[in-house]
Write a protein that binds this DNA or RNA. Structure first.
Lengths: 345, 345
DNA sequence: ATGAAAGCGCTAACAT
DNA sequence: ATGTTAGCGCTTTCAT
């Protein structure tokens, strides 16, 4: 457990200068006599040399680590996104610092500060903060940010967007095309852009199909009653209970994400209501479990891993080309038909 | 986007030495005249100073980041563990570098090397490598390792253990106590210690209840047929199909984890076999989804978040007290009874 | 209580 | 093609 070797040790060992050693060991394309280079590499191996990237970073002011801030890795949606990020990061020689904001704006800010202190130059962010003063500060300091999932229109970052409106419209239209006319919309609070947009898509689809919107059919769960937040699954159950209290029931339920939809289906089954025969249910996200539940859930595919991969590539690009413009990418939704919708026609 | 301020800038600004500035800004308990200290802090704020932890690290040879290597964050089990890790790390001022080994030993090693280059001094590891020469090397170099989930008996690290044997025995005993005598055991390949131990527990429980073990009732999926591995869910389906090929069928199925169990249930339902009335199914892990599937899955709770939290605390402890002994903790299984078991008595 | 200066490991001008 | 050297931002002896 003696001190690890440095380039100086190697230099001494082969009678060369540290500069030369650095040149061969850092794969610079600076010319070095092949024989010497070989000797250096051999010595490095012998001395069990491991480069100290901290030294390099201090000198070059470059890092190979990117930050990722998401609400919670426990949410399968983000797990998939992060998986996509990590995979491409790893391929490109980058590492991923994972931060969970736990839906706490304070914590998100603290993570941001922390990343900054650790000289992380780029972060992929699913922010839960609306006012972006703090965020803007980071940007103005030259930090690169790619936002995913939640995109605040007034902030100038790179964005990986998803067409939530179209997604909401597609899934609602699917229900309408199966003959459903009375479609409830259940969602967690509409404080996140994604949910608002899905709602908007739902409304548009109704409009196009000339079905009148009935506000009593849109049920939004109340923001976390004191204490810790309720899981979306539980919110789905709760909203369903609420929905079932007064007849007539709708013939279909559109949940703003799969987790919520699972809660809906679970509660319906508990009430002895058969899905989809008596009630159709659709979700949004296409989590792995949408395929696993019975009946398998019809939903909107959101390319989660790909989203992460794209965001990561974009960020690395940004990091390499300082003059890059903030870009924007819009990913497209896709209907995944399974077994949770009953045709009325 | 001008260069960020350093302690030298601050020193100049307040007419003090960088040493003094460092002393107050790094919260050293070195005495500094309160008035000066205040002035320094004020200047730091004014100049928008952010400490550069790279500089500090190079000097002190200490990091505040820990590495985490797991097979895949996409697996809800590891997502929960990582969530526990990240939360306590964050509380203690540490950051988490997340690495997915994708079940690839090469990649795992590469991550290890990478972490080392980045001067990460401690890692929490769910290793998929059996021969541990490489791992031993890292340990001998003073790296701190806490292993979770997969514990190789021959390697001297800190371990967070889980009593898989007892867990397997408990869940099998539960089935036996409900009158089941013909219980199939389905699992992914027994190449991971956890699976072997669960199998061992299953065997022990049968033995205690004087039920003869029938080897034709233990079905192990063949290791990934060429190309990418099949998900455990798919393996569960496949094994179930295989099991159903010849009658008589068992009355219950013990799957070595929940994911597999979901596959089992899914396939049973596809075959029109009612769970639990015609076939009881139990799992292992108690994933969030065990509660969500219908019928809710009876399984063994493994304290995933807690496991992560404990591992993280242990590692930080190890990092702070160089002379700490490698410890070992054994977490206890617990039966979670839900709706997927039918009583035969 | 404060400051001067060395040095952590590395790279990149700038010599030669 | 190789070497010398300064310096990235910080902490920490050692003086004073």
């Amino acid at each position: 457990m003696n001190k690890p070797a440095t380039i100086y040790d190697i230099a001494k060992h082969v009678n060369a200068s540290p500069a030369t050693v650095s040149r061969v060991l850092s794969n610079s394309n600076y010319p070095v006599r092949p024989a010497l280079a070989e000797k250096i590499r051999k010595a490095a191996k012998e001395l069990n040399y491991t480069p100290n990237s901290i030294g390099r970073q201090l000198k070059t002011n470059k890092t190979s680590t990117i930050g990722v801030i998401i609400p919670s890795i426990t949410n399968p949606f983000y797990a998939a996104v992060v998986s996509g990020i990590e995979e491409t990061a790893s391929e490109q020689g980058y590492q991923v610092l994972l931060c969970n904001s736990q839906n706490d704006p304070e914590l998100e800010l603290q993570h941001l500060r922390n990343l900054q202190e650790n000289q992380v130059k780029g972060v992929i962010l699913s922010s839960i903060i609306d006012k972006n003063d703090a965020l803007q500060q980071y940007l103005s300091r030259g930090y690169k940010v790619v936002t995913i999932d939640q995109n605040h229109p007034d902030i100038n970052t790179c964005r990986i967007n998803f067409d939530y409106i179209k997604g909401g419209a597609i899934i609602a239209a699917h229900l309408l095309e199966q003959g459903h006319r009375d479609i409830a919309f259940l969602s967690a609070p509409l404080d996140r852009p994604s949910r608002q947009l899905i709602y908007q898509g739902y409304a548009e689809a109704l409009h196009i199909h000339e079905v009148e919107m009935d506000q009593s059919r849109v049920l939004i769960s109340s923001p976390t009653d004191a204490g810790k937040p309720i899981s979306e699954f539980q919110q789905g159950k709760q909203l369903t209970r609420q929905l079932l209290q007064s007849k007539p029931w709708p013939t279909a339920i559109l949940a703003s994400n799969d987790m919520l939809a699972f809660g809906v289906m679970n509660e319906l089954i508990n009430h002895g209501i058969r899905v989809p025969e008596e009630m159709s249910v659709v979700g949004f996200d296409n989590l792995e479990f949408a395929e696993i539940v019975a009946p398998a859930l019809t939903t909107i595919e959101q390319p989660k891993q790909e989203m992460g991969a794209i965001a990561c590539r974009m960020l690395i690009d940004l990091l390499n080309n300082a003059d890059n413009q903030p870009g924007e990418i819009m990913l497209q939704p896709q209907l995944v038909e399974r077994k949770s919708v009953h045709s009325l026609i």
